[in-house]
Amino acid sequence: MSITLPTPFAWPWRDRAGRFSWLRACVLAAALSPGLVLLALLAAGELGAEPWKAAAREAGTHAMRLLLVSLAVTPLRYLADWPKVVTLRRMLGLVALGYALLHLALYTGHMAWDLADVASEIVLRFYLTLGFGVLLGLAVLGWTSTDGWQRRLGRRWKRLHKGVYLLAALGIFHAFLQAKSRADSAVVLAGVFLWLMGWRLLPGWARAHGLALAGLAVVAALAAAGLEWGWYAATTNLPAARILAANLDPGAGLRPAQGVLVAGLVVAVLTAARRRLA
Rank of each mutant, 00 (worst) to 15 (best):
M91R: 15
L92H: 06
G93C: 07
V95I: 15
V95C: 06
A96Y: 08
G98P: 02
G98L: 06
G98T: 06
L101N: 07
L102V: 14
H103F: 11
H103I: 13
L104H: 13
Y107V: 02
Y107R: 11
T108G: 04
G109E: 04
G109L: 08
H110S: 10
M111H: 11
A112S: 12
A112L: 13
W113L: 15
A116Q: 13
D117C: 10
V118K: 07
V118S: 04
S120G: 11
S120K: 15
S120Q: 15
S120C: 07
E121R: 15
I122F: 01
I122E: 01
V123N: 07
V123Y: 07
F126P: 04
Y127A: 03
L128K: 12
L128N: 05
T129D: 03
L130D: 04
L130Y: 05
G131L: 08
F132K: 02
F132G: 01
F132S: 09
V134K: 00
L135H: 02
L135C: 06
L136D: 03
L136P: 01
G137V: 10
L138H: 07
A139C: 12
A139N: 02
V140C: 09
L141S: 01
T146P: 07
T146F: 07
W149G: 02
R152W: 08
R152Y: 05
L153H: 00
L153D: 00
G154D: 02
K158G: 02
K158V: 13
L160R: 05
H161I: 11
G163V: 13
V164Y: 03
Y165F: 14
Y165I: 14
L166Q: 04
L167A: 01
L167G: 00
L167N: 00
A168P: 05
A168K: 05
A168W: 03
A168L: 10
A169F: 12
A169T: 14
G171K: 09
G171E: 05
I172E: 00
F173N: 03
F173D: 02
F176H: 08
L177P: 04
Q178C: 01
Q178L: 14
A179S: 15
A179D: 12
K180S: 09
S181C: 03
A183N: 04
S185Q: 14
A186K: 12
A186H: 11
V187D: 00
V188A: 00
L189H: 02
G191F: 05
G191K: 05
V192Q: 08
V192Y: 05
V192S: 04
F193M: 07
F193S: 03
L194K: 06
L196R: 09
L196I: 12
L196D: 04
M197Q: 12
M197S: 07
M197K: 12
G198I: 06
W199A: 04
L201V: 06
G204R: 14
W205D: 09
A206H: 11
A206I: 10
R207Q: 15
H209A: 14
G210A: 15
A212G: 13
L213M: 06
L216A: 04
A217S: 10
A217I: 06
